[in-house]
Write a protein that binds this DNA or RNA. Structure first.
Lengths: 694, 694
DNA sequence: ACCCTTATCACCTAAGTGCCAATC
DNA sequence: CCGATTGGCACTTAGGTGATAAGG
């Protein structure tokens, strides 16, 4: 919808023949990037809509099996996976993604979703689960998800509402969580909802399990990605189709702030059943704490579960549950006053892609009551925000958001690329329960898809290249049936330029011990437009400051440091818009031969190829991280959840887990630079145990 | 030790240049095969000790990444995985494998280990866990395990001892369980013990979870395999190094027969803690049932755990536990009278490799007291055994075993290939607690390794080729962090010939629903030497009778049925010894170009290439089986254990789960044929949920 | 009767949850 | 003193164990 030239169907942008900037206007690329990266958004990506088969790839064999002599089509489809490097010329897909349990998410969203983060790692509660359709049945896909900062604000829950409490703290590198079933055929993925419950959140910056490290009291936005690739090794060369569900954003907390959220969790999370007011007598404390005042609407108690004897608080729970099960879900959202952020100021830094954002997406409902939580805007008021916003403590959506851009990138700028009708609840006028001020656009019912060409956001690109920096010990020692993590290293650069090159990027195995943590810092998506050159050496420094090992360039991909540095330098010199023009190259430095060919194109100099063997072959399953830890008799593969994780073992430059405080400080320096680049998220690695819990 | 010409170090036999029989005397191949396949055992495998690089493979790329232009060695090592087809010329490994918790295993072994099998699947209790060393740190390996019949006898527990109760029932196809972390680097594997606790045993012939189906009251031998391969797709072309730990053999039961075993389980399995006589008052029933009489030795009670107030039975438990933790382990094994089987009759069918067996390995201690459990012999007395043995009800080891051959294959014939000193307890004269008659050789302390060239046993070969028969729906829909299964189809043929070709072979994904169950029947390792031609069409029929779908030749590998049939016919015409000579070809029909090249050598006709895409690409993670089931809203990936498994969904010829009885009968027919081939085990597929238990 | 199998059960481990008091 | 964080707690789900009784 946003851009008519932008086919709603996700026509993958294929990074073939990189040296053909003309074919890759970058529009697609930028679409999914930060708000500030949308200047070229209007460019017709049609040129790239159809993947171009790479003539030089036909003969390559995958996994040692080669069947080039066969005819294609049905048989070919089945054999597709056999041909590793063969371009998916014939693959025709148009992925549709819907969020599972949308109703429940909406319930939380209306109240301002909170996710507890703990040292030991915490799952997300409304489980992030999506249903995918429209994939090529036989083609292989890798599905991933990550969680990025939604803005650059720090929040505090005051007077029963969330308020901005200053500028965001530096973000730790974010991990790209590869669904453990990856790669799998479209048919397999579409068979049933794809869940990401194994992804855990933590506030432990020294986490060695591969969990996603978040800052407490900061807002985050989960993202889902679809990549058509039959091997994880190809991720760096592949097209990412990103989908963002605004209703899944949340504020990370170490302890629940909003009692209503707590109640919602208790009422819907089976593991918290013990805290439900089932009338069995136990658990009554929290019950009435603050709910009476906070709960706005009185829903007819539905004693459908746990008997019926429920007190005031028990009523809501059942309602919530119903919402989860009912097709329409969402009763007139309880206590959801006008959100803030409605009056986004499109001015200044948000480039040129903002115009629609305000319309399409109601800037996310504000968390607290009707408070002014900068949901939809990526940028936060910094410290000044406090001044400006402090007054709005009352309850109107007042001066909610100054951030003109959308959320990280999907939250705002991309949302229309593909608006899939959610199952229901699409009624735009769905009460005013939503964000008051933002009520204008049907917020919840609209699903934002950052797929189509735009998927190659800066953040993505980051995670596509530079992996060469890592590579050493991607796989953690624990490896039992766990997912992989990609660590798109963060490299602050000229907006879009360097970052677009895909610097930084880590693939880590499932289990804990992964060591290789590369990529640089995470990015604060909010600010953009301000091009701040970010010399490569700086990024290296950043990595080091984070305790992220800078392998002797033992990354996965044959991407020489030197090249990247040069590119970065060049990119840094380019204006934001020019960065877009440099698209093809920026996007993926490996595009030289277009496919993962490895025919050593100019961009694929075999120089300084990293030693890491981990990511190579198959990928996922091979997620054991021996390195440090040595042979710990205690835990054995397949039974170790992820306790004994060496992290950083192999990396020589790894300063050892840096203390939280100091690290934060060092990160702060870069934070500023990163903010300017927007959309850049760094990644880490490691991973939880692959197999079963024990 | 067995054969001086046989390097103890596992020099992998590389199936390169198949058409060079001279280089592959088959000796190595047969070493790991059935006892009856050892005629050529003495042949010096030295010729193949060093893997030969395949000149035609250097240019192939793996997983789309190719870095042939780089120098090798350290850097090369790291990049090795990048070169998919590149031969591991430079890989120098000498795998050493030790069984974890050997002391505990010994405790059980002395009593006659029993493993409960249930419809829903049961884990093995002494967990099968091994510690691996000597691997190439950077090379990638796939680790597997399977459980094969130890002999062809049926047992019964009578008068507190195990006795042969006739000929074995037909075996269901056995699954090759691929460790879920596969493939992983040697470094990763060596980092910590490799556990296989996810492998479950069942007696449900219709199992759709991919569990290993065993016959109750039959004896089995777990085996461990190391394959240097960076992709599961290469398994068929790779060298298997097999390790057998005689002390891990067991008799499958639906209910424990020997109370001492029960007690040992209770005392050591944390999940059975509730049944321990902790003096807390509860659980006292079983306590004295039959233990007083059965338990021979009185061990000084060690009230170290669970307080000290233990009754007679509680004493032993603690002792057992100690054994598990103590380095030396094993106190003078309690109540372990002379075993039987000592007097193996090397005559008749056991070819020419038996001479040493009796020396090295004490024919496994007999299960019951000093009873005559045919531990070490693969063959059982058939029905006649009953007559012969019925009198021995008393308690002497009397007419224990008539089986001359070794256990399946590792139990006897291969044991010396590599005798690794176990951690301790190597004292040969370790009391007579062991099997009485067998006491001669130090049984327990010797670890049998069927590695070295011999690993390519008939059973293995089976699982290496014919995979083309399957392929359709290898991966199950559930796919969460689960292991893969290889189903080496069973094809009774001339001893070694057809079977050696590697017919039948299935790779299944983790989760339940996998459908493709191919391969034929399982093999009864015992009997051999008698060459019984097994027309391919027969095997097909078998498959069908088992409810195993015969995909429209939609297997994984380009191996036309016709070819196989022809080869089978040819092979069947060959004498056992000649089969050995045909080695290179028999071993792996795909050897044409030696490596997984797929350059369509004469043996790799691209004809009738199967459509299955599942196994292709990466392998493990992509273990979702969409096909049937459609999109079941209920279970979602990553959270579905393996309940809703479609099994056979795609396969059109799948007769639907055949009733236990009828199936058995049909299998019986083939059983006879299979017995003659020995060492052949068929495989199935499917798999449990990959990720968490959820 | 005997032998074996099956389903159910109580009891246990492992791990996800919010609560709460203590701590920073 | 407050805000945020932490660790222990009780409670939950999920699933592994052998016991037991019933069934074949």
């Amino acid at each position: 919808m946003r851009d008519p030239a932008f086919p709603g169907t996700a026509m993958a942008y294929h990074p073939f023949h990189a040296p053909r900037p003309a074919d890759f206007p970058m529009s697609a690329f930028l679409a999914a990037a930060q708000p500030s990266f949308f200047p070229a958004l209007a460019l017709p990506p049609a040129a790239l809509a159809k993947p171009m088969p790479d003539p030089g790839l036909a003969g390559a064999a995958e996994a040692g099996l080669h069947v080039s002599a066969l005819g294609h089509h049905h048989q070919a489809a089945h054999l597709r996976s056999l041909k590793s490097l063969e371009p998916e010329e014939e693959v025709e897909d148009d992925p549709k993604v819907t969020l599972e349990a949308k109703e429940l998410w909406d319930q939380f969203h209306k109240l301002g979703t909170e996710m507890v983060i703990t040292k030991s790692g915490r799952r997300m509660f409304p489980p992030f689960k999506v249903r995918v359709s429209g994939l090529d049945k036989k083609a292989k896909y890798i599905l991933l998800m990550d969680i990025v900062a939604a803005d650059d604000c720090r929040y505090k829950f005051h007077n029963s509402r969330w308020m901005v409490a200053g500028k965001a703290d530096p973000e730790m590198p974010k991990r790209m969580y590869i669904h453990p079933d990856s790669p799998a055929t479209g048919e397999q993925w579409m068979a049933k909802p794809v869940a990401f419950h194994k992804l855990k959140l933590t506030n432990n910056i020294s986490d060695k399990h591969g969990f996603t490290i978040l800052n407490s009291m900061h807002k985050y936005q989960p993202r889902f990605h679809i990549v058509r690739a039959n091997d994880i090794l190809k991720l760096p060369y592949s097209t990412f189709r990103t989908y963002v569900f605004p209703e899944t954003d949340f504020i990370a907390v170490t302890a629940y702030q909003n009692d209503k959220i707590t109640q919602l969790k208790i009422d819907n999370n089976p593991f918290a059943k013990g805290f439900r007011d089932t009338g069995n007598g136990r658990r009554e404390k929290r019950k009435q704490l603050s709910l009476p005042s906070l709960r706005m609407y009185e829903e007819p108690c539905k004693p459908d579960r746990d008997g019926g004897e429920s007190d005031a608080s028990s009523c809501e729970p059942s309602a919530v549950r119903d919402a989860l099960h009912s097709p329409v879900g969402a009763l007139p959202s309880p206590l959801r006053l006008k959100g803030s952020g409605r009056e986004e100021k499109l001015g200044a830094d948000s480039d040129a892609e903002v115009e629609k954002a305000p319309e399409e997406r109601p800037v996310a409902t504000s968390p607290g009551g009707e408070d002014a939580t900068p949901r939809g805007s990526p940028r936060c008021p910094d410290e000044r925000s406090k001044e400006r916003r402090s007054p709005e403590k009352a309850k109107d959506g007042a001066s909610p958001r100054e951030g003109p851009g959308e959320g990280l990138f999907g939250t705002r700028g991309l949302e229309k690329d593909k608006v899939e009708g959610r199952r229901k609840e699409p009624e735009p006028g769905k009460k005013d329960a939503e964000g008051g001020g933002l009520g204008k656009e049907a917020f919840a019912p609209l699903m934002v898809h950052t797929d189509s060409p735009p998927h190659l956001s800066a953040g993505h690109l980051q995670s596509l290249a530079l992996s060469g920096l890592h590579g050493q010990q991607f796989f953690s020692p624990l490896g039992a049936g766990q997912p992989l993590f990609i660590h798109p290293g963060q490299f602050a650069m000229a907006p879009g330029a360097f970052s677009a090159m895909g610097m930084g990027h880590l693939l880590a195995s499932v289990t804990g011990g992964g060591s290789l943590e590369n990529g640089a810092l995470s990015s604060a998506p909010g600010t953009a437009g301000t091009a701040t050159p970010f010399p490569f050496h700086l990024s290296q420094h950043m990595l080091a400051s984070q305790g992220i090992p800078m392998p002797t360039f033992g990354g996965l991909f044959p991407y020489p440091y030197t090249y990247m540095a040069a590119a970065a330098a060049a990119a840094s010199a380019m204006p934001a818009t020019s960065a877009a023009a440099a698209g093809p190259l920026s996007r993926n430095p490996f595009l030289g031969s277009s496919r993962p060919r490895l025919r050593f194109s100019p961009y694929q100099l075999p120089v300084t190829i990293p030693p890491s063997t981990n990511l190579l072959t198959t990928g996922l399953p091979a997620s054991l991280n021996p390195g440090s830890e040595g042979s710990k008799a205690g835990s054995s593969r397949e039974s170790s959840p992820l306790p004994d994780v060496p992290l950083h073992k192999g990396g020589s430059q790894r300063p050892a887990a840096s203390p939280k405080g100091s690290l934060k400080e060092s990160l702060n320096e870069l934070q500023n630079i990163q903010r300017l680049v927007s959309g850049l998220e760094s990644q880490r690695e490691l991973s939880p145990g692959r197999e079963s819990p024990k």
